[in-house]
Design a binder for these strands. Structure first.
Lengths: 214, 214, 214, 214
DNA sequence: CATGAATGAGTGTTCATTCAT
DNA sequence: CATGAATGAACACTCATTCAT
C-alpha cells in the first residue's frame, strides 16, 4: 500500500465521507418501513448513529433526503440493466426469463426494492417525486422491455402482439412481488410465502409459451 | 299514513343513522388519496358534512376510523365471486378471462379498490389489518383461483402446472392495475394510460395459451 | 336588559369573541419587550392565558399576529389623527404643536409606541413587515403632516419651505422620543429623563417660529 | 536587515494578529444589518475569512463578540468633535449647522453609525452596553451641544431657552436619520429617500431662526 | 347528540457552541 | 492555533383528541 497515493484519512474525515451513504441507507430502511410522512428524521439520524442536526448538514430537507434515497438506489440500476440485456446471447424467450430473474436478484430481492413500494404508497402526496420516478426509472425500464418484446416479434419467435400491453404483463408480476414482499409477506407464515425465482421462472415461461408464434 | 303518528324519518334523522357510513365513505376517498398519515380527520369530517367532534363520537380514534374503513369495504365481495364462478358455463380458459374481467368491473374499477392500495401502503403500520385482509380476502380469493386452475388441469385443458405459482400469475396483474390506477396514473398523460380491460384480456389469453395442454 | 335583543352569551362564546383582542394585547407587550424575532409565540399565548395551539387558531402565523398588532394599535390611530386635525380651530402653528402633543398622548406615551421602535429594529430582517408598516402607517401619517405644513404655507402663515424636509423635522423628535423611551430611558437616572411634553412643546414652538413668514 | 534573524511578519502571522479586529469588522456589518439575534456567527466568520470554530477562539460567545463590536467602535469619535468646535469661527447659528453636518459626514454617513442603530435596537437586551454608550458617547456629545447653545444664548444671538430640551432638538434629527438610513431606507424608492445634508441644513436653519433673539 | 374551541405532544428545521483531529 | 463535523436545545407550526356548552 502506498501512503502517498492513498493516504489513510483521519477517522473524522473517513466518517464524514461516509455520512451521506449511512444516512441514505438508514433513511431507506425507515422510509420503507413507515412511509414518507410517518418517518421522523430524528429516527433516521438515530439509526445512522448521528444526531438530528447532522442529518441536516447533508440534506437540506426531509424531501431532499427522500430524493437522494431514490436517486442512489434506482437510477444507476436501470442503466446497468440495459448493458446486461445488450450482452445476452439466446432466444427472446430465454432473454425474457433471464431479465426478469436478473431484475429480481439485482433489485427486487434487495432492500432497495422497498422504494418501489414507497413510491406507490406516497406518489399522490409527492407528485414531483412520482414524476421524477416515472421519468428516471419507469420509462427507461419500460423501454428496455419494449425492445425485447419487439425484437422477439420481429424475429418471428413471438407472434404479433400488442407490445404496450405485453410490457405490463412482464412488469406486473415483478411489481406485485415487490409490493407483496414489503407489505404482505410479514403477515404470512413461511409455507405461505411466494418463492420469487420459481414464480418468475414459471411466469416467464408461461408468457413465453403464450407469446410464441404458433 | 299519518305523518304525526308515524312520521317519515326526517332528513336529519336519516342522516344521523348513516353518519358512520357517510364518514367511512368520506374517509375512504381521502385515505386512498393521501394515505393514513397525511389524512386529516378534519377533512374527513368536512367531506361527510359534520364537525370534527362528531367524527370522534362514532370512531374513538383515527386508527379506528381507518380500520372501520378497511373492514367495511372488504365484506361480501369474495362470496359473490364464488357464486358467479359456479354458474359460469365455458372452458377454463374462458372462465379465467371472465373472472379476471369480472373482478375488474366489480372491484378494481370501483372506488373500493382503493382499499387494496391502502392495505398495501399501510400494512406494515397496521399488521392486524393485513392479517384481516389476508384471512377475509386474499385466502378466499386464492382458493377460488386455485380451484379454477385445478379444474382446468384435471379436465386436461391445462397442462400440469404448479398451481400455487400460477395463481399469482392471475392475481399479479390485477393488483398491479389497482396500484397503478391509484398511485401512478395521475402522473401519466392520457395516451400513456393502461386500458385495464384490454390489458386483462390480453394477459388472460396469454396465460391461457401458456397453460394450455400441448 | 332585554334578553331577546342581547342574550347573554355562553361563557365559551364570550371568551372566543375576546380571544383575538386578548392575544393582540399580550403580543403587543411581548413584541415590544423582546422584539419580533426574540418573541416566542408560546409566551404570547401563555400571557393571554391560552395554549400555543389556540393562538394559531386565530392567527395563521407569527407574522400575521404581528400585523394584527400593528393594525389594531396604529392604523386606527392614524385615521383618528386625521379627524382630530380636521376639527382643529386655530393657527397652523398652534395646530402643529397640538398635533405633536396629541400624537404623544395618544400614541407615544402608550405601550403601542414600542411598535415603532420594534419596526426600526427589525425592519431589515422582515422587509415585508417594514413595507406593510410603511404603507399602512408611515405614509398616511406623513400625508397628514404634509397637509398641515402645506396649508400653513398657502395661508401665508409659514414662509415657503421644502415641505418634504420640514415633515421630517416634525416627525424626527417624535420618533426620537419613542426610540429613547423604549431603548435608552431605562439606563438613565430619573433627573436625566426627557420630559416629553415640554420637549415637544418647545420643539414645536421652535419650528413654528422658524417656519413663520417674516 | 536579515529576514532570517528578524523576519518581516508573514502574511499569515500578520493576519493572525488582526483576527479579532477582522472579526469585529465583519461582525459590525452583519450585526448592523440584521441585529443581534438574526446574525449568524458562521456568516461573521465567513466574512472574516475564518472558520466558525476560530471565532470562538477569540470570543467566548456571540454576546461577547457583540459587546466587543460595540466597545471597539465607540472610542475616539467625540473627542474629535470637541476640537473641531473649538476651532470654528462664525456665529452660533453657523456653528450649529456646521456641527450637525460635520457629525453626519464624520459619523452618520459612515458604517460606524450602524453602532447607534445597534445600540438603540438591542439596548433592552444589553443594558450594560446602553450604560456604556450613555457614558462614553451620549453624555459627552450632549455636553458639546449644550455648550454651543449656552454660548449662543450668552452672546445674545439666541434668546433664553431651555437648553436641556433644545439639545434634544439638535440630536433628534441626527438619531432619526441614522435609524432611518439603517432601518427604513431600503423599503423606500429612490425618490422617496431623505437627502441627509439638505434635511440637516434646513433643520439647522429652522432651529437657528427659531432660537434667534427677536 | 352535535359542536367547535381548546389543547399539547410532536415534527421539521436552525444555529450557537464544542471538541477531536 | 485552526478546523469543521457534530451536537442538542430551541422554536414555529400542525393536528388528533377532548370536553364544556
Amino acid at each position: 500500500m502506498n501512503s502517498i497515493e492513498s493516504p489513510a484519512p483521519h477517522k473524522r474525515e473517513r466518517r464524514k465521507q461516509d455520512r451521506p451513504g449511512e444516512l441514505i441507507e438508514a433513511a431507506l430502511d425507515i422510509f420503507v418501513e413507515k412511509g414518507f410522512a410517518a418517518t421522523r428524521v430524528e429516527e433516521v439520524a438515530a439509526r445512522a448513529g448521528v444526531s438530528k442536526g447532522t442529518l441536516f448538514l447533508y440534506f437540506p430537507s426531509k424531501e431532499d433526503l427522500f430524493k437522494a434515497v431514490v436517486r442512489e438506489n434506482l437510477v444507476a440500476s436501470v442503466a446497468q440493466g440495459a448493458e446486461d440485456i445488450a450482452q445476452f446471447k439466446g432466444s427472446s424467450s430465454e432473454l425474457l426469463e433471464w431479465m426478469m430473474l436478473q431484475w429480481w436478484h439485482r433489485y427486487g430481492a434487495t432492500k432497495a426494492s422497498g422504494i418501489s413500494k414507497l413510491i406507490m404508497s406516497e406518489a399522490s402526496n409527492f407528485p414531483d417525486l412520482a414524476v421524477f420516478f416515472r421519468t428516471e426509472v419507469i420509462e427507461p425500464a419500460h423501454a428496455l422491455v419494449r425492445n425485447v418484446l419487439q425484437a422477439g416479434i420481429e424475429s418471428g419467435e413471438f407472434r404479433p402482439t400488442n407490445v404496450e400491453l405485453a410490457l405490463h404483463s412482464v412488469m406486473a408480476p415483478l411489481i406485485f412481488l415487490v409490493m407483496w414482499k414489503h407489505a404482505m409477506s410479514p403477515c404470512f407464515s413461511s409455507q405461505e410465502q411466494i418463492n420469487p425465482e420459481a414464480f418468475i421462472s414459471q411466469h416467464a415461461r408461461l408468457m413465453a409459451r403464450g407469446l410464441s408464434a404458433p
